[in-house]
Amino acid sequence: MEQQTAQPEMTVIGGVDEIVEEFQPKIEAMICTYCTYAAADLAGSQRLQYPPTVKIVKYPCTGRISVAHILKAFELGADAVLVGGCEVGTCHFIEGNLRATERVAYAKKLLEETGLGGDRLEMFYISASDSHGFVNAVNEMTDRAKKMGPNFLGQARG
């Protein structure tokens, strides 16, 4: 998929002097090459619209995603993280997506403990043909991050 550059949307509020940057959450999508990555690719081919502030990290299988990777993303300023794996029963490595499900649940608890909030992280099951599933996942996480507000650790890092 073409890398999309993150451009903050500018909204003019009040007069010309008052240009406020609308909060565009930075979403990290940790996705499996066999399913969600293909779906994201298809979404691009179909010209489906979704927030350009999503950064894709391609994994050979969601079973490779460590809780440490997820927390690192938040530490470095991600506003939300989505993990996209194959539908249950269709993992190329049989149960990598089930392992990811367990790890995501654990990572949500760890995030909750830090005060950042476990809802900033979610697991999605998106098949290779489900381009709309990918777009919905990105929109869902963007909405959640907008509700929860920015991850200030990201702001500190600019």
Binding site: S66, V67, A68, K72, E75, L110, L116, L153
Partner: peptide
């Protein structure tokens, strides 16, 4: 190693937010 990384991230996030 992984658990060290996890705890370090958690502390950086929690203390950073404070």
């Amino acid at each position: 190693e992984i658990e060290v990384s996890i705890l370090a991230s958690q502390l950086r996030i929690a203390l950073g937010l404070e």
